[in-house]
């Protein structure tokens, strides 16, 4: 509850004006900044554009349905936590968040564990068919999810895995494992090969070297790859919705329930939307220092 009420002032205050104030030290450190104000103008306006819809969502989540439909107000006239109470007291709502977090977590762990050795192989060795293998892996990242929906359903039905977390986690590996391999390969190629050779001379076995020496060196790369796996598994709906019915249903699929006989329950819908933004915001905060390099997939 605390987190949700924190986000509201944030969205309003962290827009352009806040950025415009603090520009003096930026100017000193950047010799090419001719006018500090204009430096921040474009990014500031852009962030304002990004924040407006989110602000509107948060605003609406604190309104009653009556206020939403009857009057047009920029701020909730009578702020209410009713919409959030609905979600946190109804198990069919909040289990959706738990389900989503479970399969996203599983997927992230599986993807990283499988991708680490493969990325090492791609970054250090040439082998039979390595280039073809790499493009084939990446081509799965390009495959439209819509193509896979029906076959996935049949495949996991055959194994009796429909409506389990592991089914969604495995299905999301289709696009997350190639991505993790790609990102980790970029970071690993930045580590000089002499380190491997020195370690072998010092008598390290491959597994020991990999865990004790190599993994700490690319820790930021692992963090970034995990962040991306989390991100793409968290935002995906089509496959997750198809493979689940009740027990493992993700929150994003449950949100469609707000469309009831009496029309759409906008307040609860908005509150549920706000709550889906929070995990992403938390994860982003943890990788904030690697964000730029991470988005370049370690390739700058």
């Amino acid at each position: 509850m605390n987190q949700t009420s924190h986000t509201q002032p944030n969205a309003g205050s962290m827009n352009k004006p806040a950025n415009l104030i603090d520009t003096s030290n930026v100017r000193a450190s950047n010799r090419f900044a001719k006018k500090s104000i204009t430096r921040w103008l474009v990014p500031g306006l852009y962030i304002l554009f990004l924040m407006l819809p989110i602000y509107w969502l948060i605003n609406m989540s604190f309104k009653t349905n009556q206020e939403i439909l009857s009057s047009f107000t920029l701020f909730p006239a009578e702020p209410t936590l009713h919409n959030y109470t609905v979600i946190f007291t109804d198990p069919s709502w909040y289990t959706g968040y738990i389900n989503s977090l479970i399969y996203v977590g599983l997927n992230t762990v599986i993807s990283i564990c499988a991708a680490l050795p493969a990325a090492y192989a791609f970054s250090r060795y040439r082998f039979l068919g390595d280039k073809h293998m790499f493009f084939w892996l990446l081509s799965n990242r390009m495959a439209p999810a819509a193509v896979f929906v029906l076959p996935f359903f049949q495949l996991y039905s055959a194994f009796g895995l429909i409506d389990t977390h592991i089914a969604v986690a495995l299905a999301h590996c289709l696009f997350n494992v190639p991505l993790a391999v790609w990102i980790l390969e970029g970071f690993m190629s930045g580590v000089p090969k002499e380190i491997d050779e020195t370690a072998y001379i010092d008598g390290y076995s491959f597994p020991k070297f990999f865990v004790k020496i190599f993994m700490p060196l690319i820790a930021s790369g692992i963090g970034v790859a995990a962040f991306f796996c989390f991100m793409f598994s968290w935002v995906e709906l089509l496959i997750a919705r198809t493979l689940t019915t009740t027990d493992a249903k993700p929150i994003s699929a449950i949100m469609t329930r707000t469309v009831g006989a009496s029309g759409v329950d906008w307040g609860v819908l908005a509150a549920a939307g706000v709550l889906t933004i929070i995990p992403g915001a938390l994860v982003i905060y943890f990788v904030r220092n690697y964000i730029a390099k991470g988005f370049a997939l370690g390739r700058v």
Binding site: M14, N19, P43, Y46, I47, L50, M51, I54, M231, W234, V235, E236, L237, I251, S252, M255, T256, G273, T276, I277, P279, G280, A281, V283, I284, Y285, R288, I291, A292, F295
Partner: peptide, 16 residues
């Protein structure tokens, strides 16, 4: 701060 705010839309589930 800017980078985090800019990255925020990327982490919102697509149906949201």
């Amino acid at each position: 701060v800017c980078l985090v705010l800019m990255a925020l839309p990327l982490l919102i589930p697509w149906n949201v």
